[in-house]
């Protein structure tokens, strides 16, 4: 491996680590706003990782939608409900300990499995390149049905969110 690869890989590892740290921050920070920002970092890092595996289009989509729309939405919500946040309130609730035990068990189960299983890595998959064209083709032919349904779903979500979130009319 050459220097470039080395740099790229190490950078990727650093990004992974930071993403984990940011994730930790996202779930443990008392200040929600900071938590949201940490989330943003994680999302960006994920996008970077997408690039590293050759899914550039996805990375773009990730940034645009996740970071651009979802995160914004979350920030709006945080802002709208920020007033009643007292900094003294703990970030996590009382069942931390059982959760940690469960997670340790979970990890203890999954990690060894992940490492030991010989994933059937195929050379053809590794060699294949995914272009936007192929994605678009697949989306419009093979996965047309879920595509349309998702459209309908988003429509319903649109209406539903408006209905749920609006102020009650004085009855």
């Amino acid at each position: 491996m050459n220097v470039l690869e080395f740099l790229v890989n190490s950078g990727l590892y650093v990004m992974m680590g930071l993403a984990l740290l940011a994730g930790l921050g996202a779930v443990t920070m008392r200040n929600l706003f900071h938590s949201g920002l940490c989330l943003a970092f994680v999302l960006m890092a994920i996008a970077g990782l997408y690039v590293s595996v050759g899914a550039e289009f996805l990375a773009m989509v990730q940034v645009l939608i996740y970071v651009g729309a979802v995160l914004t939405l979350i920030i709006y919500a945080i802002m709208l409900t920020a007033r009643l946040e007292a900094p003294e309130t703990a970030a996590v609730n009382s069942q931390v300990l059982p959760i940690l035990i469960a997670l340790i068990l979970f990890l203890g189960c999954m990690l060894p499995a992940l490492i030991r299983v010989r994933w059937p890595v195929t050379e053809s998959a590794l060699q294949a390149t995914v272009s936007v064209t192929s994605l678009g083709q697949a989306l419009m032919t093979v996965y047309i049905f879920p595509f349309e349904v998702t459209g309908v779903l988003l429509f319903a979500v649109l209406i539903g969110a408006v209905v749920v979130a609006r102020k009650d009319r004085d009855a």
Binding site: V27, L32, I74, A77, E85, T89, A91, V92, N93, Q95
Partner: peptide, 11 residues
């Protein structure tokens, strides 16, 4: 499982 804030859960 552990977040007190609802929005924190969504995050």
């Amino acid at each position: 499982l552990a977040r007190r804030n609802a929005i924190g859960v969504l995050i």
